[in-house]
Deep mutational scan, measured.
Amino acid sequence: LTDEELVTMSVRELNQHLRGLSKEEIIQLKQRRRTLKNRGY
């Protein structure tokens, strides 16, 4: 997933992508998404 996709994707879509990932990967992705959102994309 690109940063842009992460930010513009709805939470529902995101959760579908996260299905099948490990807990660590999910946590990393969610942190990255929060960081991007805070940057004001």
Rank of each mutant, 00 (worst) to 15 (best):
L14W: 09
H17Y: 15
L6V: 02
I26P: 00
M9H: 04
I26S: 08
V7E: 07
I26L: 04
L18Y: 08
L1D: 01
K37T: 05
M9Q: 02
R39M: 15
E13H: 06
L21K: 14
G40Y: 14
G40I: 15
Q16P: 02
G40L: 14
K23M: 10
R34L: 06
L18A: 05
S10G: 07
V7F: 09
Q31M: 10
G40E: 14
R33H: 14
L1S: 01
S10E: 04
N38M: 08
L29I: 15
L1K: 02
V11H: 10
E25S: 07
R32D: 01
E4A: 10
L18D: 01
I27N: 09
E13V: 06
R19W: 04
T2P: 03
E13A: 08
R39C: 15
I27V: 11
R32H: 03
G20S: 08
R12L: 10
I26H: 04
L36W: 00
Q28V: 12
T35D: 15
D3E: 03
L29M: 08
R12T: 12
M9N: 02
E13I: 05
K23A: 09
L14Q: 01
T8D: 07
S10V: 02
L6C: 00
N15M: 13
Q31F: 06
L29E: 02
R19D: 06
L1T: 02
I26R: 15
S22P: 11
E5F: 05
R34H: 08
E25R: 07
K30T: 08
H17N: 05
L18V: 07
E4T: 08
R32K: 05
E24I: 11
E24P: 09
K37C: 12
V11K: 14
D3Q: 01
L18M: 14
R32P: 00
R19T: 08
K30Q: 09
K37I: 14
T8H: 15
S10P: 05
L18K: 01
Q16D: 11
T8G: 13
T8F: 08
K30W: 15
T2R: 04
L36K: 03
L1R: 01
G20E: 05
L14R: 00
V11F: 07
S22M: 05
R39I: 14
L6W: 00
N38Y: 08
R33F: 15
E13L: 05
R33L: 15
E13C: 03
N38D: 14
R19F: 06
T8M: 12
T35E: 15
S10H: 05
K37D: 04
D3R: 00
K37A: 05
Q16F: 11
L21Y: 06
S22R: 07
G40Q: 14
L14S: 00
Q28A: 14
S22I: 04
T8W: 06
R12W: 09
S10L: 03
E24F: 09
G20D: 05
R32G: 00
V11S: 08
Q31P: 00
S22G: 07
E4N: 07
S10Y: 00
L18E: 01
V7W: 05
K37F: 08
D3C: 05
I26N: 04
E5K: 07
E24K: 11
Q16H: 08
K37P: 03
V7T: 06
I26Q: 15
Q16E: 12
N15H: 09
E5S: 04
E13N: 04
R19G: 07
R34G: 05
L21P: 00
M9E: 02
S22N: 07
E5L: 07
R19V: 12
H17R: 13
E13K: 07
S22W: 01
Y41W: 11
V11I: 12
H17K: 10
T2K: 04
I27A: 11
R33V: 09
K23D: 08
L6D: 01
L18R: 00
E25T: 09
I27Q: 11
L36I: 06
T35A: 15
Q31T: 10
K30A: 05
L21R: 10
Q31L: 10
T35Y: 15
N15P: 01
E13S: 04
H17L: 13
I26A: 15
S10T: 13
Q31W: 06
L1I: 10
Q28W: 10
L36G: 03
L36M: 03
G20Q: 06
V7P: 02
M9R: 02
I27D: 12
I27L: 10
V7A: 09
R12S: 12
